[in-house]
Design a protein around this nucleic acid. Structure first.
Length: 555
RNA sequence: UGCCUGAUGGUGUAAUGGUAGCACAGCAGUUUUUGGUACUGUUAGUCUUGGUUCGAAUCCAGGUCGGGUAACCA
């Protein structure tokens, strides 16, 4: 059973470094979000990788906010990011901010200037773009490229002092305008932004660019393995260049493929659109791929961790089947969720051989998968709710539920036999009649009657009203962003269906926000945060596998 | 068009020159007081063309296809 799991390529790198004693046998990673949005399932992968690696190799993992752009970043996001990471089950060793290093970074820039490796450029963004060249044509030098060290030093300090307006000047690294790697063509490393920063306030009016902040921050924190996604590969050359020229701790960047899940979009821009244009009801809408959305939907932290563990870490593009995610949550909830009964599309069932007013108490297991999950008492009477789907006037051959003359077991209760039913003018079934077999009581059945079907039910006298929200995929196609046209054209109109008049067991009124339930035969559910004392709402996390539905579909 | 990357069943991921395996999905069956769960069986894969080698998914060369890359974003 102790099957050895193969190492992924990052683990191989780390184990080699460990055995070579590259960093005195230490591992130090970091998770570096920009606080300008909510975390989503893709970030969860990065979190699992970075914190997970630190955990596995008894190292450390920092949480570092990459807050070098004051115009987009907010404290609100800092808080939500921290909450999401903790909820996922990880704790950082240090909570840090790139903005903590602004003074140090400024000095690094001065050092570059002194070494003749950086210069102040007065060109406009357009002029700079024009001189940058294209991937196939080399760039050419800016007219400001050969300013003296003294002039550059003075200008840069004046930039800091606030002498110039936004956009008037930038500081650039002096590398090579003919470099194959566009990022090495004298990248901008500081820009002027007279903007309020969420942490440093108005102390600064110049801010470092990502490339001039990230690697150095890693270095300052002595990050041994700076792990990011594949699109940063071209940045590595610059990352290494700064570290080499500044002669600072040699952190190394390693890249893995970010995880894409089909039927989901995770770009910040698109997620923002969904929220802003009210396609969903907020960042934590249960249909959103955000951590907060998944949490509200009923996904557990463990299921998300298992999901990414299952997927693995590699470098090739991927498109993970959402079925795997659903498998992971079902697998967990099957073992942990309390079983309850609910009827979401009710029709009345009358037991004809039980007198009015008689109530029978029955015991029902909370979860037969678990040894000590206990039991609860439920009531049974002559007026019940059952699921409309569980009755057919003209059932096909392999239909194991109720129909005229058919027998079925009511879960935890008795076997019944359908004797009659009533329809209204529209042909809708209004009532179903059945007799029950008293000697077929669940757990002490002496009737000798064998039935193939078991259905769930609720006693009309004790059932409570509840709202139930059923979710489906947010999109109708696997990858809405690769389709012709706008991704919003592929939004699933039926991604949410609200059932306002569902019935649930009275025990469910005591549900807490953390409780997970399996509504028998319907799926896994959790209480929504918008529930009130008088109006309880349940979200369906995921349905049960339904081989009957498949059968029906085939026919 | 340059540079950087990558390519193993439908999907994800192993095999690190020596039997192509695991998980999800699919299909078939057994069990079952959830048409759930569990269990069993099963379909299906090395991008291509050469080369090296006793032996290649793995090494080499060419090609094909995918992704990234030209923000004072990260």
């Amino acid at each position: 059973m102790s099957e050895e799991r193969a190492l992924n390529f990052l683990e191989e790198i780390i184990e080699k470094d460990l055995s070579d004693n590259t960093h005195d046998g230490t591992v130090h990673t970091r998770f570096p979000p920009e606080p300008n949005g909510y975390l989503h399932i893709g970030h969860a992968k990065s979190i699992c990788v970075n914190f997970g690696l630190a955990q596995k190799y008894k190292g450390k993992c920092n949480l570092r906010f990459d807050d070098t752009n004051p115009s987009t970043e907010e404290t609100e996001f800092v808080d939500s990011i921290k909450a999401d990471i903790r909820w996922l089950g990880f704790e950082w060793d240090n909570e840090l901010y790139a903005s903590d290093y602004f003074e140090q970074l400024f000095q690094y820039a001065q050092q570059l200037i002194q070494k003749g490796l950086a210069y102040v450029d007065d060109s406009t963004a357009e002029e700079m773009a024009a001189l940058k060249g294209t991937p196939t044509t080399v760039g050419s030098d800016s007219p400001f490229r050969n300013r003296s060290i003294e002039e550059n030093a003075l200008l840069f300090s004046e930039m800091r002092a606030g002498k110039y307006p936004d956009g008037a000047k930038v500081l650039r690294a002096k590398i090579d305008m003919k470099h194959d790697n566009m990022l090495m063509r004298d990248p901008v490393i500081y820009r002027i932004k007279h903007a309020h920063h969420h942490r440093t306030g108005n102390h600064w009016c110049i801010y470092p660019m990502y490339d001039f902040a990230h690697g150095q921050s890693d270095s300052i924190e002595r990050i041994t393995h700076s792990i990011c996604t594949m699109e940063f590969i071209p940045h590595r050359e610059l990352y290494d260049w700064f570290i080499e020229k500044l002669e600072i701790f040699p952190s190394h960047q390693y890249e893995f493929a970010r995880g894409n899940v089909n039927y989901m979009v995770t770009s910040k821009r698109r997620l923002l659109q969904l929220v802003k244009e009210n396609y969903v009801e907020g960042w934590d809408d249960p249909r959103m791929p955000t951590i907060s959305g998944l949490r509200r939907r009923g996904y557990t932290a463990a299921s998300l961790r298992n999901f990414w563990d299952n997927v693995g870490v590699a470098k090739r593009d991927n498109n993970i089947d959402i079925n795997l995610l659903e498998f992971c949550i079902r697998e967990e909830l099957n073992k942990t969720a309390l079983r309850r009964m609910a009827v979401i599309n009710p029709v009345k069932l009358i037991i004809t051989n039980l007198p009015d007013g008689e109530s029978i108490s029955l015991q029902a297991e909370n979860n037969h998968e678990v040894e000590n999950a206990g039991e609860r008492t439920i009531s049974f009477s002559n007026t019940l709710w059952i699921e409309r789907d569980d009755f057919m006037e003209n059932p096909p051959n392999k239909y194991f539920r109720l129909g005229p003359g058919l027998k079925v077991r009511l879960k935890h209760a008795y076997i019944i036999e359908c004797t009659d039913f009533k329809k209204d003018e529209q042909g809708t079934i209004t009532e179903i009649y059945a007799r029950y077999f008293p000697e077929s009581k669940s757990g002490s059945d002496t009737s000798g009657i064998k039935v193939k079907g078991v259905i769930h039910w609720l006693d009309c006298h004790s059932a409570k009203k509840a709202e139930v929200r059923l979710y489906d995929k947010l999109f109708t196609v696997e990858d809405p962003t690769s389709e012709e046209g706008d991704f919003k054209d592929f939004i699933n109109k039926d991604s949410l269906s609200i059932v306002r008049d569902a019935w649930v067991e009275p025990a469910l009124l005591e549900a807490t926000d953390e409780d997970k339930f399996q509504f028998l035969r319907l799926g896994y559910f959790c209480k929504d945060k918008n529930s009130t004392d008088t109006h309880i709402i349940f979200n369906r996390t995921v349905g049960l596998k339904d081989s009957w539905a498949k059968e029906v579909k085939k026919a």
